[in-house]
Design a protein around this nucleic acid. Structure first.
Length: 199
DNA sequence: CCATGATCATTA
DNA sequence: TAATGATCATGG
């Protein structure tokens, strides 16, 4: 499994696989994930995986804080389809489905140059178990329903990243006016998924 | 310092 | 061409 890559430096691997990390000073924001996928022999797989046995591989930079590793960024989980969200109960939502099939890789963030990047932690399928065990499930569900309610009452455009406790509906436009939205996992949530909260 | 909002590269 | 996901930048 992916666990055996923990502790490895991803940066040299990117060069080895000829994966673009920077292009004219701009980062290839998917390089880390591409490296991992290549390691697994999957090749570049950036498909959304709507209804397969397939799982999704995601990665996020981590910052060292004292003795602990803290997620530097939130994670984009899946896009929000306004109509779909309003008419779909949480149990059947794309969000929930994704959460159960996602693998999140945490890598150590050194600097913007990505001079080095050590793989720290890998969150696997036991995400679902963690969710079902405690109050996490209820909180995630509550966040999802908050989004539903907001869209119904105030419209899709009223959604803001301020909403949600573990999951937030953030803007994620293509960058030039057109804006769509996606579900993001807040840092707290990321920590839990990666198993960084409990030792 | 942290969070939200906005942007960029890559792929289908 | 548009969609998708990760990361950057500004404001509080």
């Amino acid at each position: 499994m992916l666990q055996k890559y923990i502790g490895q430096d991803l940066r040299p691997l990117a060069d080895k696989f000829k994966i673009t990390v920077f292009k004219k000073g701009k980062p290839n924001k998917g390089w880390a994930g591409h490296v991992l996928e290549t390691c697994l022999g999957l090749g570049i797989n950036s498909i959304q995986a709507p209804n397969g046995e397939s799982w999704e591989l995601k990665s996020t930079p981590l910052r060292k804080k004292g003795e602990d590793y803290i997620p530097k960024e939130t994670i984009a989980i899946t896009m929000i389809g306004p109509e779909n969200v309003v008419n779909t109960p949480f149990e059947k939502s794309h969000l929930w489905y994704k959460l159960r099939s996602i693998i999140i890789c945490g890598r150590l963030f050194i600097d913007k140059q990505e001079s080095s990047s050590i793989l720290i932690s890998v969150g696997t399928f036991d995400i679902a178990e963690k969710l079902e065990e405690g109050s996490l499930y209820n909180q995630v569900k509550a966040d999802y329903e908050l989004v539903q309610k907001s869209i119904k009452e105030s419209g899709f455009e009223s959604l803001t990243g301020k909403m949600g406790v573990l999951i937030q509906p953030r803007t994620k436009g293509v960058g030039h006016g057109s804006t769509s939205r996606a579900f993001y996992a807040r840092k707290e949530f990321v920590k839990i998924i990666l198993g960084l909260d409990k030792k």
